[in-house]
Design a protein around this nucleic acid. Structure first.
Lengths: 204, 204
DNA sequence: GTCTATAGCAGGATAGAC
DNA sequence: GTCTATCCTGCTATAGAC
């Protein structure tokens, strides 16, 4: 099922690249190494992808689509059912979704930290989240927005005290527990408590 | 004063490396490029540093010492003077200190995100901060700690809802304002407000 | 301490047979 | 779609003159 042999070539490449990029960074990973780990001939990588950049961009585009899909589903489900879902439950569900993709997210963050002029997929993802969470948030297209102070205020708040801590928890969880000798389940419990008492408790 | 010519060779190298690592990442930056930007002969880099890794580690060790010094001074000053300094004022002072070093901090974070087994200077820095901020926090040495649940809880809270948002604001501030078309001063104002209403407002 | 020159190899990418 | 062989640039690192 999840064994290498049963996956398509493209899938094998993407999976290997994801693991290696997360482990060693994009520039620290050679195409040779990806081919080796994916158990695929190097030329096949250039058959399926224009170059190394095209490879990482495909990864990013895919997760963007997945996130879009997840958000639509999640918000639709929550408004369909009469049941009010608590913020904390939604966060747990979100953490679960994100944890499965934590390697790509790490890579996205590394690339977003660089100063070069590439597309910032980290911000793009955040934008998608805000579009669902903040009522009346629009961005797409060249439309000039009424960049009201209130919206800017909400954005800063949502990003730096909401989105960022969650993403940080996802990408640093494991390394954190190793370094500070903390049990993983405990860390999760403490994080949810912290998040509830800070971001979720504020009357923004 | 701050012109290239007045700096020592080592200083020129470190400064150029810092800018390039922040712009393109550690692995994305060649020693050739560093030499060129620093206006220094490449062989000089290998004269002063064992290799490229030694170069980045020197940067990290230096900022660790600077942080240590800053924290000692800041906490000493605040307890000396009878004047109670508000949390928010301390945060602003801290942001100022960190902003001047945002490039190294970005690099530290990129490296911390990688999965390899190098020293995690990002966590090391956080540890130093906690040592000053959390009463009774000790770590150093092989001493086995009473890793009480309470301390672990505090650590998670301080790191993910305090340290991380601040660091994220420092490293993403500029890129954020570009992307979301936000004025830099406004962003700072909104961030401080957000931080006050979340991390600082919780009764942890 | 500073510079030139170069070793030695790994990297991204492609041509072309099957 | 898959594989072999290869190009060639650019990389880290060092030797050795001054």
């Amino acid at each position: 099922m999840s064994s290498k042999e049963s996956l398509s070539t493209v899938e094998k490449i993407l999976q290997a690249a994801e693991e290696l990029f997360a482990e060693r960074g994009f520039d620290g990973t050679s195409v040779n190494l990806i081919a080796e780990k994916a158990d695929v001939n190097k030329a096949m990588i250039y058959y399926h992808f224009k170059d190394k950049n095209d490879l990482i961009n495909s990864m990013f585009e895919r997760i963007l689509r997945e996130a879009e899909h997840y958000l639509k589903r999640a918000f639709a489900a929550h408004s369909d059912s009469g049941i009010e879902v608590s913020h904390l439950d939604r966060i747990e569900e979100e953490l679960n979704f994100l944890s499965k993709r934590k390697r790509i997210i790490s890579v996205m963050m590394m690339e977003a930290l660089k100063g070069d002029e590439k597309d910032n997929y980290f911000f793009k993802c955040a934008e998608r989240v805000f579009k669902h969470e903040l009522k009346g948030f629009k961005s797409e297209s060249g439309e000039i927005e009424e960049n009201s102070s209130d919206r800017q205020r909400d954005l800063v708040y949502e990003f730096f005290t909401g989105f960022v801590p969650i993403i940080a928890f996802v990408v640093f969880n494991e390394k954190w527990c190793d370094y500070f000798k903390c049990d993983s389940d405990k860390a999760m419990e403490y994080f949810l408590e912290s998040f509830r008492k800070t971001h979720l408790a504020s009357n923004f």
